[in-house]
Design a protein around this nucleic acid. Structure first.
Length: 881
RNA sequence: GCGGACGUGGCGGAAUGGUAGACGCAAGGGACUUAAAAUCCCUUGGAGGAAACUCCGUCCGGGUUCGAGUCCCGGCGUCCGCACCA
């Protein structure tokens, strides 16, 4: 069908640069993305991880926020009250680095970045409720965080400890264990050192068991993330055993040594005891033994960096102390100090069973202490089984273990535990069962300026005194300077000097600020009622909106942010701010945006924007656009400044528009995998935008009856089937976050409609015209979540006076998806050889009868009857000849 | 070392145990045009054949099944997380 008559009314091409801001203003003017807390419809809370205001958004943001926006717009159309807010993770080091490098105040730097990035996000056409915007560096936000810190303190969830911490020498601050990656600071990349410091800690380890167990309830989380958290929490069951010490050999009054083991079954394979260099017994022994003191000193020095610890050789020092075997008072074991024993796991002491633990084996092989195997692997001869270089940690049968001989490992563990629990020394059992966790308490003190002040005061007389709630917030002083490294709050002339709230005497403010991960541990709850000036939450409202139904972000937060938030929500529950354990019901971790790399002859990297790609047959060649110099096309890698393979979202939106960027982000790869950003792909997306626009223009030109025709004939029915099948498929896949498949279905529907229109008569019959208009209406609403500006433009072209952003999701007529006849593939011996068309509800016998009349089947059977005929209704037939 | 994921055309990827390669990109051919762009049409896993069609094909080797990309066992490879945690 040609529609030349009215074609002239439209420009040749859709112009996103003109249309996109126009529709953004239209949405804004009607406030259709503002969410009311008293909305009676069923709630749906969709959230993307909020950004750090670094200054500009990157392609990862574009991908993240596009996915969230698709879900938000779809759920809104599907009849939900959708909460879809945005904010800023605004405290942190880069602001201070900028202050040092550019002499700009961190606050100014941060807020101007926020303004710039907000503009960028708005140009993406995201359906966000900006009225709920929060920035964590705003006293209106962090005052509530300070209040909760005090509440946590009162509830015993906060402690102050002098402990060994990870010190980042570049950022000059402490890092939590979770923030040390490969022995380096997660932000600075500097080798981390160990230091002893006073630290405020959140007692996350009190929740270790709960955080572990509840992982099983998070059935809409990726298995991978749950597993990572499980491993991080690191639960292990074992036995605490008190070994008596030979008094003649001990340095002072110490008469026993408590160790933790998960392998009490191997007790008869014990060859030595080992202490952490920081163990009190080691310290005591060192006082009388200068050589030992020197050894411990050496351990401390070589262990300054995490990397050094990881690569250090096993080293030990015999203290001369003897421990008595709990099952044989005549059996003593030498007590060593060893560099590989950690003071903060278990009791900081172990017994070593070299035959079945590789570290212990390495240790005895170095110091000639020997080994005795006590677990015999299945099928091994006890007389000849020996351990030399490789410890055996598998299943087996106990040997060389007196009363345990012949037992399996589990039985032996249980037997040892029972016996030692019954035995007592000094009114206490010799052993008790214990569960240990790898998870450490969360140290939150940071020696930084640009963070939330910890609201406590140190008084000589009264000790640590909380800032009275009425005096909150403790705000950051603006007059600071960054001339020297370290914490400017600590050298501020007046800010830190205050009166003690208790005694009124001279006192000192805490100058450490909170880890920025505290800020991000509850922002999603603050979004539910950011207007409450009195309290962090309005529990009734928070309880109604939470949990977040769909949280979307990068896998890099699998442990840090997601574990902290799970803890924080529980702590907020304990202190009465919300009634909820798990903050995120559904979690989706998106893949990265990756791109080819380009390298010049001189070894420097070239940016994608500087390069022109030419295809010569199957080969692709790249040259610098400016000079024509050839550049080498390198491997596809994560977009990064160091490889210079980044693409600026602004450039893409300027040249192609937001919809094209959004569409391509969704189209090429499954959302949890990396997506390769390519110029060709973007152009493909852009072509499709234009194609849709032309297609819907043609449909708009069709003169269709207003009333639904009573009857649809073949052509019209085919159109209706295509539209409703796409509707069913897109709905299903959007619910499963399979956006790449949604894209394929939309292409499919558009292709069908183009074909039908191209083949149709000049003046369509009323039923066909009506079906085309219906299909157009459906198609626009299907791609609206992905390309909302184009959808509005097309919706208007179709003659609608409403905004498609406010329209309901199309109603599916599922009858259309049910075919009356279907074509089944017919296999002979498992290979497809023919097809058969039968009634949809044909019985197995009828299908079999039809199949046996086929020429191909007759030929294959050669007059014989088939061995077997398998009929899978509505799927396939297999004839076994 | 421990734990996990993945392996399908030239590329990104589709495929409740049921017609492998949907959809897109790239490529080749053609139409329109003075020409280009844009657009439209056709071809595109491999081998053979004029064609109808036939054979082979989802990392490798076995197995279960009427039927395996999918499930099981054993390899190989790639990627990710954790890592002196007793």
């Amino acid at each position: 069908m040609t529609a030349e008559s009215s074609k002239s009314a439209r420009p040749e091409r859709y112009n996103p640069r003109e249309a996109e801001p126009r529709w953004q203003q239209a949405w804004d003017a009607r406030g259709i993305f503002a969410t009311q807390n008293d909305d009676p419809r069923p709630k749906y809370y969709v959230l993307e991880m909020f950004p750090y205001p670094s200054g500009r958004i990157h392609m990862g943001h574009v991908r993240n926020y596009t996915m969230g926006d698709v879900v938000a717009r779809y759920k809104r159309a599907a009849g939900h009250a959708v909460l879809h807010p945005m904010g800023w993770d605004a405290f942190g080091m880069p602001a201070e680095n900028a202050a040092m490098a550019q002499k700009v105040h961190p606050k100014e730097w941060t807020y101007s970045n926020i303004a710039a990035m907000k503009k960028q996000l708005q140009s993406m056409g995201l359906s966000l409720d900006w009225a709920r915007e929060v920035a964590t560096c705003d006293p209106a936000y962090y005052r509530h965080q300070q209040k909760m810190f005090l509440d946590f303190l009162g509830a015993g969830l906060v402690a102050r400890e002098y402990r060994k911490v990870n010190w980042d020498p570049v950022d000059q601050t402490v890092l939590a264990n979770e923030q040390v990656i490969d022995g380096r600071g997660w932000r600075s990349g500097a080798l981390v050192e160990q230091r002893d410091l006073h630290q405020w800690v959140f007692k996350i380890s009190d929740y270790a068991e709960e955080l572990l167990e509840a992982l099983d309830t998070l059935d809409r989380w990726p298995e991978k993330v749950r597993l990572m958290q499980k491993n991080w929490i690191g639960r292990s069951e074992g036995l605490l055993i008190r070994f008596a010490l030979d008094p003649k050999t001990t340095p002072g009054s110490e008469n026993e040594l408590e160790i933790f083991t998960t392998r009490p079954d191997t007790l008869f394979g014990a060859k030595f005891m080992a202490l952490s260099p920081d163990h009190p017994l080691a310290t005591a022994a060192a006082k009388k033994n200068p050589e030992l003191a020197a050894f411990i000193e050496r351990c401390h020095h070589m262990g300054t960096s995490q990397e050094a610890i990881d690569t250090a050789e096993k080293m030990g020092f015999d203290t001369g102390i003897k421990a008595v075997h709990p099952f044989d008072s005549s059996w003593t074991l030498p007590v060593h100090v060893a560099n590989f024993i950690l003071m903060d796991y278990g009791t900081g002491a172990i017994f070593g069973c070299p035959a079945h633990d590789q570290r212990d084996l390495d240790f005895v092989n170095k110091y000639g202490l020997g080994n005795t195997p006590v677990v015999l692997p299945p099928g091994q001869d006890p007389a000849s089984f020996v351990i030399t270089d490789t410890a055996y940690d598998g299943e087996g049968t106990m040997i060389n273990s007196r009363f345990l001989d012949g037992m399996k490992i589990e039985g032996a563990k249980e037997d040892v535990a029972r016996r030692l629990e019954k035995e007592s020394r000094g009114n206490r059992p010799v052993a008790q069962r214990q569960v240990n966790y790898r998870l450490r308490d969360w140290g939150i003190s940071r020696q930084r300026y640009w963070g939330c002040p910890i609201p406590v005061i140190h008084c000589e007389k009264c000790g640590v005194v909380p800032v009275p709630a009425a005096e909150l917030p403790v705000t950051l002083p603006d007059d600071i300077n960054f001339d020297k490294p370290g914490n400017p709050l600590d050298r501020h002339p007046t800010w830190k000097h205050v009166k003690c709230p208790k005694c009124g005497g001279e006192a000192r403010r805490e100058t450490d600020t909170m880890d920025t991960f505290v800020d991000s541990s509850w922002y999603f709850i603050r979004f539910t009622d950011p207007w409450n000036a009195e309290a962090p939450t309005t529990p009734k409202i928070a309880n109604a909106w939470m949990p977040v139904d769909q949280y979307i972000g990068g896998i890099e937060h699998a442990i840090l942010h997601l574990l902290y938030s799970r803890f924080f929500t529980r702590a907020m529950k304990k202190t009465g701010h919300i009634d909820l354990d798990e903050p995120f019901a559904g979690l989706f971790t998106q893949g990265m945006v990756v791109h080819e790399t380009y390298r010049k002859k001189n070894g420097e990297w070239a940016m994608p924007a500087e390069v022109t790609i030419v295809s010569e047959g199957d080969n692709r060649k790249a040259t610098l656009t400016a000079t024509g110099e050839p550049v080498e096309i390198g491997p596809i890698e994560k977009m990064s400044k160091s490889r210079r393979n980044t693409v600026d979202p602004d450039d893409i939106m300027d040249s192609y528009g937001a919809d094209v960027a959004r569409w391509f982000m969704l189209s090429d790869s499954p959302p949890d995998r990396d997506v390769i950003w390519s110029e060709e792909g973007v152009q493909g997306a852009s072509r499709f935008v234009q194609r849709l626009w032309r297609l819907l223009g043609e449909i708009a030109d069709v003169q269709a009856p207003v009333a639904r025709p009573a009857q649809f004939f073949d052509q019209a029915t085919a159109v209706r089937k295509a539209a409703h099948r796409a509707l069913a498929n897109v709905t299903d896949d959007i619910n499963k976050l399979r956006f790449n498949r949604c894209v394929a279905h939309i292409y499919g529907c558009a292709n069908t409609l183009s074909d039908v229109i191209g083949a149709a008569e000049t003046s369509p019959s009323p039923d066909f015209a009506w079906a085309l208009r219906e299909a157009g209406d459906i198609l626009v609403r299907l791609f609206n979540p992905m390309m909302p500006h184009l959808a509005e433009e097309c919706w208007a072209a179709l003659g609608h006076k409403t905004l498609v952003a406010g329209e309901a999701w199309p109603q599916l007529e599922s009858d259309l998806l049910v075919e009356t006849t279907i074509t089944l593939p017919v296999q002979i011996n498992g290979r497809k050889r023919a097809e058969v068309t039968v009634a949809r509800d044909a019985g197995k016998d009828a299908v079999e009868a039809a199949v046996l009349t086929l020429d191909e089947v007759k030929k294959a059977l050669d007059g014989k009857s088939p061995k077997k005929v398998i009929v899978v209704p509505q799927r396939i037939v297999n004839v076994v000849a």
